[in-house]
C-alpha cells in the first residue's frame, strides 16, 4: 500500500523535525555508549523506532541488537510480525523471557490467567545485566502518561535499574550525555516529543509496516473492566460474561491478558489517522488494564525499572 502525501512536504514540517531529532538521539547514544540495545515489542511505537534506527545508520547495518521482553502471552500476529521484521533486517534478536524468569524462580508464577505485565521489569533488568547493555532505546512517548511526561530523553538508571524522578540529570539543549558507571544504564527515548497522532502521520508518510491487529477486523471479544478483551488461550469468559463478535482494532499492543481492543471500522492507516485525530479517550486509558491499578501506576512501575 503506497500512500501519497496530501500536499508537498517542506523540509521544516513537524514530522521532519521530529524525525531528525529522533535520529540525532539514536546516533548520539550509539556513539557514546558501549553496548546499546533497542527494545522492540512489535507495537507501533517500537516499529517506528526501529524504522528510524534503520534510517539513522543506512546504508550500514544496525549497530546494535533488538530485544523483545516476551511475557509469553502475546498476540500471535505480533510475534509473527516481530520475527518477519527482524529477519528482513538481518538484525540480531535477543529475547528476554518472562516465562524463563518464572521457570528459574526469579519471579512467582501469577498463574495461567494472571497478568505478567509487571514481571517484565525483572526479565528486562536481568537481560540488561546478562548482556552488559549500558543503554536501552525505548519507544515510550511523553504524551502517554503523566509520569512519562516527566522523564528525560536520556533517563539514568542506577545499579538496581531504578528511576529516581526527584534526581534526574539536567538535560540541556541537545547535549545528550550518556556516561554511566559499570552496572548502571540509560534508557533512551527518541520518540519523547511525539504524540499518538504524530506516530500515525509518520507511519502514513513512511509506509511503516505494522501487525494486522492495528487495523479493524472482526474478533470474538468479551466486555470486562469497560474494555473489549479478545477471547484467546489467556482470556476466557467468566460466568456472566458472554462472547460477541465485534469489529475492533488495537490502539496499543501489549500483553494479551491486559490489552483491550477498541471498536473501530478503520481498515487503513489513513482512516486511523482520522480516527486518532478525533478520539475522546487516551490510548492507554482505552486499552490498558495495567494503568488502572492506581493514580500513580506508571510512576510506581517506572521507579522499579519498567520501560
Amino acid at each position: 500500500m503506497t500512500l501519497t502525501p496530501l500536499r508537498p512536504q517542506t523540509t521544516t514540517d513537524h514530522l521532519s523535525l521530529l524525525e531528525s531529532h529522533a535520529v540525532y538521539i539514536l546516533r548520539e547514544v550509539a556513539a557514546e555508549c558501549e553496548r546499546p540495545v533497542l527494545l522492540f515489542s512489535g507495537g507501533k511505537d517500537s516499529a517506528v523506532l526501529l524504522h528510524l534506527a534503520v534510517k539513522a545508520f543506512a546504508p550500514g547495518r544496525l549497530p546494535f541488537p533488538v530485544m523483545h521482553v516476551d511475557t509469553g502471552q502475546n498476540f500471535p500476529e505480533v510475534l509473527a510480525f516481530r520475527d518477519q521484521t527482524v529477519a528482513n533486517l538481518g538484525a540480531r534478536l535477543v529475547i528476554a523471557s518472562v516465562q524463563e524468569a518464572i521457570d528459574r524462580g526469579r519471579v512467582a508464577d501469577p498463574g495461567p490467567h494472571g497478568a505478567r505485565n509487571r514481571l517484565q521489569t525483572v526479565a528486562l533488568l536481568d537481560a540488561i545485566v546478562e548482556h552488559g547493555f549500558d543503554a536501552a532505546f525505548g519507544g515510550a512517548r511523553r504524551d502517554e502518561d503523566k509520569a512519562r511526561a516527566k522523564e528525560r530523553i536520556l533517563s539514568f538508571r542506577d545499579a538496581f535499574g531504578q528511576w529516581d524522578p526527584r534526581q534526574q540529570r539536567p538535560e540541556l539543549w541537545q547535549l545528550y550525555q550518556g556516561r554511566v558507571n559499570a552496572g548502571e544504564h540509560l534508557r533512551a527515548f527518541p520518540l519523547s516529543d511525539w504524540t499518538e497522532l504524530d506516530i500515525w502521520q509518520y507511519i502514513e508518510r513512511e509506509n511503516v509496516a505494522l501487525p494486522p491487529i492495528y487495523f479493524a477486523h472482526e474478533r470474538e471479544v468479551i466486555r470486562r473492566d469497560a474494555m473489549w478483551l479478545a477471547v484467546n488461550e489467556f482470556i476466557q469468559p467468566r460466568s456472566g460474561e458472554h462472547v460477541e463478535r465485534r469489529l475492533v482494532r488495537y490502539r496499543t499492543v501489549g500483553d494479551a491478558t491486559c490489552t483491550g481492543a477498541v471498536e473501530s471500522d478503520a481498515v487503513s492507516v489513513e482512516a486511523i489517522v482520522r480516527e486518532v485525530a478525533t478520539a475522546n479517550v487516551s490510548e492507554r486509558g482505552a486499552t490498558r488494564a495495567d494503568d488502572r491499578f492506581s493514580e500513580t501506576a506508571m510512576e510506581d512501575r517506572k521507579r522499579e525499572g519498567y520501560f
Binding site: R142, D143, K146, K150, Q168, T296
Partner: peptide, 29 residues
C-alpha cells in the same frame, strides 16, 4: 501537569512536565 506522587502531595512542581498541543497552525511542545 503535576504528575508525580510527591508533586501532588506537596502541591508543587519538582521537575519539568512536557505536554503537547496542536492547533491547525502549529504543534506546541
Amino acid at each position: 501537569t503535576d504528575g508525580l506522587r510527591a508533586e501532588r502531595e506537596q502541591g508543587i512542581t519538582i521537575d519539568v512536565a512536557y505536554r503537547y498541543a496542536s492547533t491547525p497552525q502549529r504543534k506546541f511542545i
